[in-house]
Design a protein around this nucleic acid. Structure first.
Length: 646
RNA sequence: GCUGCUGUAGCUCAGGGGUAGAGCACUUCCUUGGUAAGGAAGAGGUCAUGGGUUCAAAUCCCAUCAGCAGCUCCA
């Protein structure tokens, strides 16, 4: 006697479904096309495998392959198949975990212990091929629940020691489930696609690296193999293009090719040499930064690179931050340390004289070069270095000014970032961490101030509970680049602690002493990191306002050289960055070199025609042929593009 | 710091127990050419560093340094 249950579909319609029939049966009964693209099912909002029987009345939704959730299921199943493939080439490897991940580059990974004989990059193509075979074989993914003792027995018989630990951690009473496909079986909650064939042809094995078991540095290190899976082969090819494009934009690559900067072993890890062209871009960034700060109520200050130990004790850095500091300079028998932050200096400036409530707020900004010890393995091009210049500012406020200043700060941050062609942001509010200093009431007040500013400015944000700094909550701004990748640059942090530690005060309206509040604020983050992000964002092709060379005048033949040199000189005198190429190369070669290899925004050809018409044939790297322009017109164009920051 | 990989010319890389190779870039010469690579010649390397094995090491082994992919970390 078969019973039936009642299923409610997303459109509100209801239908009878045999009890213990699977989600796949349901999809089939709705439509063949739907069944074909179905990869999972949501039952009362919870995603699960199609092959799990439906036992009770429920609201369900079929999850199809081209949705974010559908892709997650496909990726999870692909990870499973990858583990199957590794088991075939290395039967004694031990599996740990293989989840789907949300990363622009990878869709899933599997952590595997290969014991004494690690696998290498060269093994990956074989694994990819085996995966394709397993997928083509279209094994059903069979869902299976086992009692604890049988589950343990099963994993023990497969030699999966790590899975035994996992079973151990599953609370009593919770189901222990497995998925089988062919001869392969894995402890897994799922969900998985109904058959390996459903994974499709959009899979790839992409990389290999070490990873601590459970991402915990106390544990042993396993091999993490990264892969990706898409709904079809074409989407995977698109992803490979994205990876190629990202590699082309790699700021370390472009830094070399365009002669922007270098970081060499001889110098010391994590230290940067800014070459003339990179230095010029930095100069323009700094120039803009200074002008905007002066226009927006900031004062510019400077502080030294070192200070005596006492200062860093008072600030708490030696307690909280010593591991990241370069310490132990001996000056006349007194300990000095390199500065890892600028705040204590600005605080000393504040303390330098008595302050009145009428003076506040102070907004003090500095391009301050700091040094922090970063572990060797974490250094990365310009993005993670040991010596860098923060575009730092510290605001000293009366408590009643906090809300308005936070809002003002955020507005300013976005204004400046937009000038650099960033239009999309992701903001994150980080609240009190477990290890914190100060009063809870102050924390709450600051968190409210930050959140209120986000709301007033109508900005979307997410909350990272416990992600704040030890001295206060913060808002981080991530910027989205032209490839859709996010980079963390700006940060706005409220601080009640430092004013306390340094016993800061101002004379209030009543003649008493009141403690000011501080805001720490970095806007570009560090000039090094921001430059790295800019390079990747523009793929090395800086807009006219930032480009170290804005235009190159190209002589068609030898007799045009003089005109080129003269015009270039004239334009340089008018403040433009213009060079002349009078070499004996052909015009095609010169265009290739300047426009495409050196990524100069525009070139101007000078030949017989141009000399006759007193013009220049101008070609913009992005906008193409701009026709013939006079020298004045060319200067106007450069001016306009500079004004428009293009 | 951890796991794995890598280090050869300015750059990209090939080679590999017997005195070092290519392409691009560079220098010189020829070519005066009209919108993404004209031709020729030349110069350029302590094969990361230190030690070991060997008749012989750039090549094999060990260590160190640096870089790469991640993981941990990132006030």
């Amino acid at each position: 006697m078969s019973q039936s249950i009642q299923i409610t579909l997303p459109d509100g319609s209801k239908r009878e479904h045999p009890k213990a029939g699977t989600g796949l049966d349901l999809a089939m009964s709705i439509g063949k096309g739907l069944a074909k693209s179905a990869v999972a099912i949501k039952v009362d909002g919870e995603i699960q495998s199609l092959q799990v029987p439906l036992e009770e009345d429920a609201a369900v939704e079929i999850v199809t392959r081209n949705t974010p959730e559908g892709l997650e299921v496909i990726r999870h199943s692909a990870a499973h198949v990858m583990a199957d493939a590794f088991k075939r080439i290395r039967p004694d490897c031990k599996l740990w975990k293989g989840p789907p991940v949300d990363d622009p580059r990878y869709g899933f990974y599997y952590d595997i212990d290969f014991g004494e004989k690690p696998i290498g990059k060269t093994d990956l193509p074989e694994v990819e091929k085996l995966m394709a075979e397993i997928i083509a074989a279209d094994h059903p993914f069979e869902y299976e629940e086992l009692p604890r003792d049988e589950a343990i027995e099963l994993m023990r018989s497969h030699g999966e020691d790590y899975k035994l630990d996992t079973i151990d951690k599953i609370p009593a009473g919770e189901t222990i489930s497995f998925f089988r496909s062919g001869d392969f079986v894995d402890l897994c909650k799922g969900p998985h696609v109904p058959r390996t064939g459903k994974i499709g042809k959009g899979t790839a094995v992409l990389g290999i690296a070490g990873a601590y078991m459970g991402d915990d540095a106390n544990n042993r290190m396993l091999t993490r193999v990264y892969g990706h899976a898409f709904s079809d082969r074409k989407a995977m090819e698109g992803h490979r293009k994205f990876l190629e494009e990202a590699a082309k934009r790699d700021h370390r690559r472009l830094g070399k090719d365009l002669d922007l900067f270098s970081t060499m072993g001889e110098l010391g890890g994590g230290l940067v040499l800014w070459h003339p062209k990179g230095g010029f871009v930095r100069h323009k960034v700094e120039e803009y930064w200074r002008n905007e700060h002066l226009k927006n109520g900031y004062d510019i200050v400077y502080s030294p690179h070192v200070a005596r130990g006492d200062l860093w004790s008072t600030s708490g850095h030696l307690d909280f931050y010593a591991d990241s500091m370069f310490t132990g300079l001996d000056v006349d028998g007194v300990d000095y340390h390199l500065k890892p932050m600028n705040c204590p200096f600005h605080i000393l400036m504040y303390k330098n004289k008595r302050r009145s409530y009428r003076d506040l707020p102070f907004r003090w900004a500095e391009l301050g070069t700091v040094y922090r010890y970063e572990s060797p393995g974490t250094l990365h091009g310009l993005l993670r270095v040991r010596g860098f210049t923060q575009d730092d500012a510290h605001l000293f406020l009366r408590p009643d000014q906090l809300d308005a200043e936070v809002e003002r700060c955020l507005k300013f941050v976005l204004h400046v970032l937009r000038a650099f062609d960033f239009t999309e942001f992701h903001l994150m509010l980080s609240t009190r961490p477990e290890k914190y200093v100060g009063e809870i009431a102050d924390w709450e007040k600051s968190e409210v101030a930050l959140e209120q500013a986000l709301k007033t400015l109508n900005l979307e944000y997410t909350v990272d509970p416990g992600g704040g700094a030890f001295y206060g909550p913060k808002i981080d701004v991530n910027i989205k680049d032209s490839l859709g990748r996010f980079w963390q640059c700006s940060t706005v942090q409220v601080d009640f602690t430092q004013p306390d530690r340094f016993d800061l005060s101002y004379i209030d309206r009543d003649g008493g002493r009141t403690r000011p509040v501080m805001i720490h604020r970095a806007l570009l983050g560090s000039l090094e990191r921001f430059f790295g992000v800019l390079i990747e964002h523009f793929a090395g092709a800086f807009p006219v306002w930032l480009a170290p060379v804005q235009a190159v005048l190209l002589a068609v033949g030898e007799r045009h050289g003089e005109r080129c040199e003269e015009a270039a000189k004239e334009l340089r005198e008018r403040g433009f960055r213009v060079q002349a190429d009078t070499s004996a190369e052909k015009i095609g070669q010169k265009i290739r070199q300047h426009l495409w290899q050196e990524k100069v925004p525009m070139i101007c050809v000078v030949g017989d025609q141009e000399i006759e018409s007193a013009g220049f044939s101008v070609r913009h790297r992005k906008d193409g042929d701009l026709g013939s322009l006079s020298l004045d017109q060319l200067a106007d164009l450069l001016d306009r593009l500079t004004q428009e920051r293009r």
